[in-house]
Design a binder for these strands. Structure first.
Lengths: 183, 183
DNA sequence: TAAAACGTTAAATAAATTCTTAACAAAATT
DNA sequence: AATTTTGTTAAGAATTTATTTAACGTTTTA
């Protein structure tokens, strides 16, 4: 490789690294581990890759790449590709942020709704038991009723969040909030 | 306190703890530290509190409560209240999840848009320099152009995210996705 | 004016997480 | 059939993060 080409290549890398850094930082802030975040951000600028190519690129261990790529598959930010002739698995990053990032948020919200609604239902059952219990003092019963009502009201949020997820998943939200560039 | 009252009180606490646990877990998953997450979740069921009341309730140190409550103020999940006569500061949790949680997400997205758009602009400038540079080989220039285009396309997402935040902040989104409708 | 109360900052400790090395299992090539 | 290749699991090391204890500066009260 000639000197000028080498120089331009490192300039290319440096330019990419600026974006790679911020993408990874964002994922980091959402609780994705550094290795996983860096992997996705790096793959954002690559075509399909093998685990060995990833570890070479990031200078990290293979198990780290293996677990990271698995996590990225879980959150649908990377998908496996079929490559004829190669024994090595190949993976490609989802480049469309509407699918990668919004998909990630939707997954988090779905989990949030599911877990919290379950806890709320259980909790409300307990409060009703306390209210009905003849052994409960009027003060305790009133407190239980108050908490019950508070939880009941909070359900509005979770129902709405569920609707938001559905609207994003179906693409219906783009009728209300259009994407500014044609894609 | 009578025996039956004590028993009902711990039953009240247990019922609340189920919801407290899941709220805290959700915040945890979004990168909020455990002490801070637990504090908000606990305060969700309380009226205004002092730092000493918080540390008694959570059995944690005062500095931990101090830094946690500050963080919660930053993300607008807790606000300070004026309490006449008391030297101690008092704080109250934002009970409306549309304001607390959605406010938190909006803040995260605003940061995401700002940071990534800045990086993209800088990066694109670099790619243009490479393209214009006579020392760049045609291959390198073509690659730079490709990355430039990829980043340009990604802006659509950030613009949309900005619109989403604005729509949530203004409440306009509720015209499209109304709140109420239970079940 | 001295002492106590309150909140915060700094340093140190404790805990949890993340990554690596090593060992393993499955599949394929020789 | 033996060896190599590939990906994953398990255990350990290293780093990072979170929390506590200690010290500090202000403000208030006695």
């Amino acid at each position: 490789m000639s000197e000028s080409t080498e120089g331009s290549n490192s300039r290319l890398e440096q330019a990419k690294d600026k974006v790679i850094g911020t993408i990874a930082e964002t994922m980091d802030l959402y609780g994705v581990t550094p290795a996983t975040a860096n992997l996705y951000a790096m793959m954002y600028f690559k075509d399909q890759m093998t685990l060995d190519e990833m570890r070479t690129e990031l200078e990290m261990s293979k198990p780290s790449m293996s677990t990271s790529v698995r996590r990225l598959q879980e959150i649908k930010m990377v998908k496996r590709t079929f490559t004829r002739g190669s024994r090595k698995h190949t993976y490609i990053a989802e480049k469309n942020f509407f699918r990668s990032f919004m998909g990630f948020y939707c997954q988090m919200w779905e989990r949030e709704v599911k877990m919290n609604m379950e806890a709320i239902e259980e909790s409300q059952k307990d409060f009703i038991d306390i209210i009905k219990d003849a052994a409960s003092t009027p003060e305790v019963a009133a407190e239980a009723q108050q908490y019950y009502d508070q939880l009941e009201e909070s359900k509005t949020y979770y129902h709405w969040l569920d609707d938001l997820v559905a609207s994003i998943r179906s693409g219906k939200i783009f009728e209300f909030l259009p994407k500014d560039q044609p894609d």
